[in-house]
Amino acid sequence: MTPTALNRAVQTRHHLVSARVENKAGVLLRVAGLFSRRGYNIISLAVAPTDDERFSRISIVVAVESNLLQQVIDQLDKLVNVVEISELDPGEANTAELLLVTVNAGIDTDAGLRGLAEATGAVVVEKTETQTMLRLVAEPALLDDFEQRLRSYQISELQRTGAVALPKLGGTS
């Protein structure tokens, strides 16, 4: 199994939970607390206000068995600050994540890196002769692939935002 395929296999056990919450102090603590008390590690977490400033949307990716996840979702739903919560099925949601990476290679001198950027649609944010900072927005699995392919270069720093998602158009919700 290639590293990429392995990554994808792990990915299938990941669940994306999306919650609309009140935009108030302490909400994140309460939400995170229901995962941490069970010893579940949150894989990624993205929080930002929605179009209505009274509310924020929290997108959580967590690796957990489905029946246990439902229990956590039910208990999250009980939180006074949580307005709506659901698990987004990857097949019924559009998912995106942003990755920023600095590699120790100049994109003008390294044809391979240039090719990778062009093939994936990664944008050059900043460059020097010896370093390149790239940005890629894509589905998390594509970012995983991109990250793997970058490993043949020396990665100086890498940061991902965590997945965000919205239901697909024409879906049941």
Partner: peptide, 14 residues
């Protein structure tokens, strides 16, 4: 206090 009691209250307010 709100942090300490978050998991043992139905809700709390600062």
């Amino acid at each position: 206090t709100t942090g300490i009691t978050a998991s043992v209250t139905k809700h709390n307010w600062l």
